[in-house]
């Protein structure tokens, strides 16, 4: 459904890992609950037995969940540490969020309202807001980072497939928050180069006038 990349796989794996364990535990709890309600219904079971508890059982269901959640923490952390370390050779683009549009400033000096990036190249976005809080969110890349005034944030990704993907604003920012959409368009290397050339020519032509 979404472009594959190792990062996306990591996120999805962590999600599936937690979901699987959760589903299993939820099923266990629910089935036991329903089973007990029928098995020990007062019509069948007139006399209840007072059981005050069991320390070994308590220890068991304290320790096992601790181990499970530590596993969950580990997988979540692994994905995150990748997301927080952009490669040194990343292409950098400056992103400015303002009510209610995005602006992308390229190192070559031109700017756009849609993000164009080359395929297979790590891209680091330096995020800043001109007014209130926003959040730069590419659902297909499983990545999001708040765009705040007075604070430098960044986000990086490496798109492995070409195509066009939605970018949304995920932090509430007022009237047209839900329309603050743009796209990230992933081009092959050669397409990207020709697009860039065109952009540079246009912007220098614009300056000449």
């Amino acid at each position: 459904m979404f472009p594959s990349s190792t990062y996306i796989e990591k996120v999805d794996f962590a999600f599936l890992f937690i979901t699987a364990i959760s589903a299993a535990l939820l099923l266990l709890v629910t089935v036991l609950m329903i089973y007990f309600v029928f098995k020990y219904n007062h019509k069948k079971n007139k006399k209840a037995v007072n059981i005050h508890g069991s320390v070994p059982l308590e220890i068991f269901w304290t320790v096992v969940p601790i181990i499970l959640v530590l596993g969950m923490f580990y997988f979540g952390w692994m994905g995150y540490s990748e997301a927080s370390n952009p490669p040194a050779n990343s292409m950098e683009v400056k992103v400015t969020g303002q009510m209610w549009k995005w602006t992308f400033d390229y190192p070559e000096g031109f700017s756009t309202d849609t993000l164009y990036v080359p395929q297979g190249v790590p891209v680091k976005l330096n995020l800043n807001s001109a007014d209130v809080n926003h959040s730069f969110y590419i659902p297909a890349f499983r990545i999001k980072r708040d765009v705040l005034p007075n604070r430098e944030n960044f986000l990086w990704f490496n798109a492995e497939k070409t195509g066009s993907f939605d970018v949304a604003c995920a932090e509430y920012c007022g009237l047209r928050h839900s329309y603050m959409y743009t796209k990230v368009i992933v081009l092959t290397d050669s397409d990207y180069e020709s697009w860039k050339k065109q952009k540079i020519e246009k912007s220098s032509a614009g300056q000449a006038i």
Partner: peptide
């Protein structure tokens, strides 16, 4: 729990 996992959180937060 899913949101406590950092990488998953970056996707589903907000």
């Amino acid at each position: 729990l899913m949101q406590g996992a950092l990488s998953v959180n970056l996707h589903i937060h907000d």
